[in-house]
Computed example of a mutant assay.
Amino acid sequence: MKTRPQLRVIFFDVFGTCVAQRTPVADELWKAAKEALESDLSSVSSEVRTKAMNMSYEQWFEFGGEWNKDVDIFVSDSKAKYNSVDWRAVDKYRFEALHKLLAQLGLIIPREDDASTSELRVKEGSLWDESQLRQLGLVWHRLPPWPDTCHGLELLNRQFSTVTLSNTYDDLMKYLVAHSSIPFKHVYTSDMFQSFKPNPKVYLGAAEKMGVKPEECALVAAHLSDLKGAKACGFYAIYVERPLEEKNPELREENIPDMQIKEDEDGFVALAERLGIQVD
């Protein structure tokens, strides 16, 4: 690993790195299903009720993973077709994907006239109605921080400018950061640079916007592909391992990180300590 440069700004990937994804999504789906099945006001059909009752927490956990994977495919297809990504469209598709996957499991019953309207509608007897589905579809706007995130950032803020750098749009990221009270000094998204990571335009544009040189920047991420893109632009690459977050384990062979915080260490708090900050 190379000698650490004189860093001034630390950028952070957010989804999976700063906020947890897999378990919170599964928790919310599991809880919402339980509430629907126990509600006296629920109109869940006997067939849907039986299917929902047979869904274990582990199955909801896997469902959340499939949901996220489906959205990742949508993003990849958009990149391949248009060499751009409309992150608001991705947010909209996330709801459509939830609707599609639940219908495949027989947990919601789509309306036959769906094709004639832009609104996704469900029949009575579904596990959730449209309003409840919309609320579930927004789970990605309110993902909770990892236990070390807020304290670690408070420590890092003593010495560095901390900045989000996420593949999403500004309004969503500001809402998520405010919702979870994550103490970033600045909120940047790839949408600000009309591109998406790992395109160099995002990393270099973010450094320029902060008024610093790339070698004065670090990227913290739980995804090696993101770190590879940042490192190619001159950033210092800090890998913070998070459970089930690495989507490209084959990249471990490339020795990408300049610094690595292992999964059994204390995340951002361990990072602050490694960067020479006195930990409270």
Score class of each variant (00 low, 15 high):
31 K>Y: 10
23 T>D: 08
241 E>K: 15
275 L>W: 03
127 L>S: 07
156 L>P: 01
128 W>L: 02
200 P>H: 09
96 E>Q: 15
24 P>A: 01
145 P>F: 03
127 L>R: 01
121 R>T: 08
197 K>I: 09
273 E>Q: 12
222 A>F: 07
235 F>Y: 13
4 R>Q: 11
244 L>P: 00
59 Q>F: 06
31 K>W: 09
157 N>K: 11
82 Y>C: 03
8 R>K: 15
94 R>F: 00
123 K>Q: 14
20 A>W: 03
86 D>V: 14
215 E>K: 15
97 A>G: 08
60 W>A: 05
247 K>I: 11
135 Q>I: 15
207 A>K: 02
180 S>K: 13
87 W>E: 03
227 L>Q: 05
227 L>R: 06
56 S>G: 05
21 Q>D: 02
100 K>C: 06
38 E>F: 14
93 Y>A: 15
115 A>I: 05
62 E>A: 10
258 D>Q: 12
180 S>Y: 02
245 E>F: 02
234 G>I: 14
129 D>C: 10
117 T>V: 05
202 V>G: 10
275 L>V: 04
83 N>P: 01
269 V>E: 13
47 E>Q: 15
243 P>R: 13
26 A>V: 07
229 G>M: 10
156 L>F: 05
149 T>Y: 05
155 L>F: 00
59 Q>V: 08
56 S>R: 10
4 R>Y: 00
88 R>K: 15
178 A>C: 06
97 A>S: 14
75 V>D: 02
19 V>F: 01
26 A>D: 02
64 G>H: 04
172 L>M: 14
111 R>C: 13
135 Q>H: 12
101 L>Q: 07
209 K>D: 01
221 A>N: 06
154 E>D: 15
113 D>L: 01
26 A>K: 01
162 T>A: 08
195 S>F: 01
93 Y>H: 15
138 L>A: 12
215 E>C: 14
276 G>R: 09
187 V>A: 03
51 K>D: 12
155 L>R: 13
169 Y>F: 14
170 D>G: 04
64 G>R: 03
110 P>S: 03
15 F>L: 12
94 R>T: 09
149 T>Q: 11
123 K>L: 12
40 D>H: 09
184 F>S: 05
52 A>Q: 02
99 H>K: 07
165 L>K: 05
220 V>Y: 10
132 Q>N: 04
113 D>V: 00
71 V>P: 01
56 S>N: 05
199 N>P: 00
269 V>H: 01
205 G>F: 01
66 E>M: 14
114 D>G: 01
149 T>P: 02
231 K>C: 07
31 K>E: 03
11 F>D: 02
48 V>L: 10
239 Y>F: 11
33 A>M: 09
109 I>Q: 09
267 G>S: 10
173 M>K: 05
41 L>Q: 13
260 Q>F: 00
143 L>A: 10
70 D>G: 02
261 I>C: 08
47 E>M: 08
242 R>D: 03
134 R>V: 14
233 C>L: 12
207 A>C: 08
83 N>T: 06
78 S>M: 12
63 F>N: 03
160 F>Y: 14
32 A>G: 06
